[in-house]
Amino acid sequence: MSDTPLNGATPRSSGLLSGWTATTWATAICLVLLAVVPPVSFYAGQPFHVDLATRLVCLSIAAVSLNLILGYGGMVSFGHAAFIGIGAYSVGIPAYHATYGEFDLIASYNGWFHIALALVVSAIFAAITGAISLRTRGVYFIMITMAFGQMVFFLFVSMETYGGDDGLTIDVRSELPLIDLDKPLQLYFLCYGSLLGALFIVHRMVNSRFGMAIQGAKGNELRMQSIGYNTYVYRLVAYIISGAMCGYAGFLLGNFTTFISPEMMDWTRSGELMFMVILGGAATLVGPILGAVAFILLEEILSGFTIYWHLPFGVLLILCVLFARGGLMGFVSQWGRRNG
């Protein structure tokens, strides 16, 4: 992947608005479509499309967060779904106690409290697991992050109070000032705004000194270390930021589905997130969003045809790995170069 020139690698497209290359166009079109299509189809009497778009945007945020460490940092985390779960249960557990009593300390419907809880717990979990797993490299890192993700999965399975395997229904959505999350369009625009925020954070980070150090460590860790960078600390900080961002995506997803279960942090979910990143184009700003869009639309379309839709889906994933390196954004930038 790293050998394909992608967004950020070509000097002309390094700024979001400086020089409109094919990748910048793709970014803009993608974001405008996400802003326009859901409200239009909502008022055209297709509220289902808004649900689809909300799920898509939530997963996009998770994919963008994963891209920060996987794409730019070269850390192949296979446990990112755990953060989604942590974020979602940060809504579910306080709301559960606010409804059914006990644990007054965390019982609350307050959205700010839910967000803070999601961010803090995700960050702490990322700090602990990251500190251990970042000591290893390559395939060890993949498997260890996977195992830690599965650890959280089993933790929530074993917590009978919160439904265990059967999951937990969120009776009351998070209460935030000015917006009402029970209104689909308001929830959608909260998610969409959050996605823009996440993109902005990642864009700024990647082009900062910090981001350069992360990308440098991906390219050649020894070189970064020998010019005086403590790559371990840089990676750990990136891992924590990514985890917290993904926890926030979980907060949104929990508010959207209003039903949360350990199933949403199963390791296959982490695999799907990874696929969104790779399918769209790792280490590109909007690649993960394109990947998430393609992934979820494919899922919707294929599952409409047959109950065995996982088979063509799996075959497509394999073909994608074998023949479409650089992902969708790779195609876009190739097309852009060919057509001037």
């Binding site: 088979l311 799996g314 497509l316």
Partner: peptide
């Protein structure tokens, strides 16, 4: 066989696709 020359990330992704295929074939 197509994957030996690739990096671990590609192995993981492609075999993840394989899991979906196997699970569905067994289902069928």
């Amino acid at each position: 066989q197509q994957l030996y020359a690739r990096d671990h990330l590609d192995h993981v992704l492609a075999t993840f696709g394989l899991i979906l295929c196997f699970d569905t074939l067994v289902h069928m």
